[in-house]
C-alpha cells in the first residue's frame, strides 16, 4: 500500500473517481434540468394544461446525474466501502478506478447541459404544436446517446479492473 502524506493513496483515488462521476454528472443534469425548467415554467404560466408533457421533457436531462451516481455507486461497491469492510486498493488500482470514472463524468457534464437546451427548445414544440409532442420527446434523447456511451465505457472498465 502506498501512502502520500500518510493518506491511503489507492482508496483515495478510487473515491475521488467516484466523487467526480457523481458530481460532474450531477452538475450537467442540474444545469440541463434547470434550463428546461425555466422554459417549462414560462410555458406553464401561460398554459397550465401542458404541465404533464413538460414535466416529462424536463426530466429527460436528469439521467446524466443518475448515470454518474450509478458509476459512483458501482465504484463504492467494488472497493467494499458499503459493507464496512473496505478492500485494500493499490495505487495502480486506484488510478485505474479513477480513470474509469472519467468517461461518464465528462460526457455526463456536457451532454446534460446540451440535453437541457434541446429539451427547452423541444418545449417550444409542445407549446406551439401539441400534436407533435411525441416527436419533441425524441429529439433530446439524441443527445443522451453520448452520456449512455460514457456510462457504458465506465461500467465496462470498472467491471474489468481486478481487485
Amino acid at each position: 500500500m502506498v501512502s502520500w502524506f500518510g493518506i491511503e493513496a489507492g482508496m483515495g483515488l478510487a473515491i475521488l473517481g467516484a466523487a467526480l462521476a457523481v458530481f460532474l454528472g450531477g452538475i450537467g443534469s442540474s444545469i440541463g434540468v434547470g434550463i428546461a425548467g425555466q422554459m417549462a415554467s414560462g410555458v406553464v404560466t401561460e398554459d397550465p394544461e401542458k404541465f404533464g408533457k413538460l414535466l416529462l421533457l424536463q426530466a429527460l436531462p436528469g439521467t446524466q446525474g443518475i448515470y454518474g451516481f450509478l458509476v459512483g455507486f458501482w465504484v463504492i461497491l467494488k472497493v467494499g466501502l458499503l459493507g464496512g469492510d473496505p478492500a485494500t486498493i493499490t495505487i495502480d488500482q486506484g488510478f485505474q478506478l479513477f480513470a474509469a470514472c472519467l468517461p461518464i463524468a465528462f460526457s455526463g457534464l456536457i451532454s446534460g447541459i446540451w440535453q437541457g437546451k434541446v429539451s427547452a427548445a423541444a418545449m417550444g414544440i409542445v407549446a406551439k404544436r401539441p400534436e407533435a409532442s411525441g416527436k419533441a420527446l425524441i429529439l433530446p434523447a439524441m443527445v443522451e446517446t453520448y452520456a449512455i456511451l460514457g456510462l457504458l465505457a465506465s461500467i465496462l472498465l470498472i467491471t474489468g479492473i481486478r481487485i
Binding site: T63, I66, Y67, L151, L152
Partner: peptide, 11 residues
C-alpha cells in the same frame, strides 16, 4: 448504438 439497451438495463 444498441448498447444503450445494456446501459438502460443496468441503470
Amino acid at each position: 448504438s444498441y448498447t444503450r439497451i445494456l446501459a438502460l438495463g443496468l441503470s
